[in-house]
Design a protein around this nucleic acid. Sequence first.
DNA 1: TATAAGCACAACCATTTGGTTGCCCAAATA
DNA 2: TATTTGGGCAACCAAATGGTTGTGCTTATA
Lengths: 106, 106
Amino acid sequence: MIERRDVFQAIADPTRRMIIQKLSRGPLNLAGIGEDFGISRQAIAKHIKVLNECGMISVTQKGREQFCEAHLGKLDEVLSWVAESRKVWNQRFDKLEKFLDDTSSE
Amino acid sequence: MIERRDVFQAIADPTRRMIIQKLSRGPLNLAGIGEDFGISRQAIAKHIKVLNECGMISVTQKGREQFCEAHLGKLDEVLSWVAESRKVWNQRFDKLEKFLDDTSSE
DNA sequence: TATAAGCACAACCATTTGGTTGCCCAAATA
DNA sequence: TATTTGGGCAACCAAATGGTTGTGCTTATA
């Protein structure tokens, strides 16, 4: 198995998705992120590490605290992949339309 | 660890993403999907199983062959999650805009 | 009918994942 | 200064992941 570190891996885990949404409201330190999760601080720290390695967030030291900020622009990669996957799909609809158009005599 | 079977899991693996894109051009049987992947047929079959369990594709028996069809509409769940995550982000931009608007006297 | 094609099932494997606990360190705060 | 508070590091764990090989079964095809 190979360790994958991309956006798709970042958003694969539900906890990480919640973290991203939480961070979408603004930067937070680890303790702040960990609130309302029934999960240990270490588990959160690991998710933060993964998100950072995936390029989804950046971490800034500030005194003894560590503030995390989401890079929501990174999600563009997901959007463009979805768009790419549906490209032919849409073309097929276009073709179907054209076919129905061409074959309809009434 | 808990076995997660959702769209995010489906698209987390690069091989599965390629399979989805391949299927976006139309249904294929397992052998057809497996072409051009440097991977065993069994590995492909496992990915197909996962994709099916995630609801990303459906499989139809046809004689001795098994045709797979992608459910590209399922990707809407990804799009809406991304949109939801960026909602506040956009609002923040709006707020910033408003703030700049309100505070600019020149 | 003999053979090839398409696939299922099972066993096996190394690595990753997602979580835990325990200990410890440095920076704020009372 | 004593004590919280925020967090790092390492070890450990069970389960999931992504792959392999081998065997065998059924459906097409030569």
